[in-house]
């Protein structure tokens, strides 16, 4: 997180000087940024609360046990929706996915699980619906499901070919 903050600080500084040179509106940019942060802060804080509650309400052990021995088409399907339920950041989600892999789940299950987590992960839902609307969130989720299933299916086929 420190690295990301440092990267953004560098970008902000560069953009500040570009604006100073190009249009002299760098201070206006700072004011707009501050105003937008102020306006958005209640939403972001609300989304943090929502994401925190989603994270504690989803039984991670259940997802883990549910997927650990799954392979084949059923595994791909369950992996996609299991990924959606892993409402957490990569530091928490990847060790869980690793334990699902270690428990004997198929490659298709694991790939659909990672893709489902990346595209459908419920922790993103509060932010997605806040900034782009509920309809956008639903459309994006519906569009993402076939991609997760296809990714799982491709990995499963590859697994069959390799072994």
């Amino acid at each position: 997180m420190l690295l990301t903050t440092a990267i953004f600080s560098g970008i902000a500084l560069v953009l500040f000087f570009i604006n100073k040179k190009e249009n002299g509106k760098q201070v206006e940019g700072l004011k707009i940024g501050a105003r937008q942060l102020w306006q958005t802060l209640p939403l972001i804080l609300g989304a943090f609360i929502l994401a925190g509650m989603i994270e504690v309400l989803i039984p991670v052990e259940f997802v883990k046990n549910w997927l650990s021995t799954e392979a084949g088409l059923k595994g791909i399907f369950l992996g996609t929706f299991g990924g959606m339920l892993l409402a957490m950041g990569p530091y928490a989600a990847f060790p869980i996915i690793a334990s699902v892999l270690a428990s004997g789940a198929g490659l298709g299950t694991v790939v659909s699980l990672i893709t489902g987590w990346a595209l459908l992960g419920l922790s993103k839902a509060p932010f997605e619906s806040t900034f782009f609307g509920l309809k956008f969130f639903l459309y994006k989720s519906i569009l993402s499901i076939p991609f997760c299933l296809a990714a799982g299916l491709a990995a499963h086929t590859l697994d069959l070919l390799l072994n």
Partner: peptide
Amino acid sequence: LVVSFMVIGQLHVL
């Protein structure tokens, strides 16, 4: 968040 909204503000005028 503070820094990223500084970027957003600068992009807004740029």
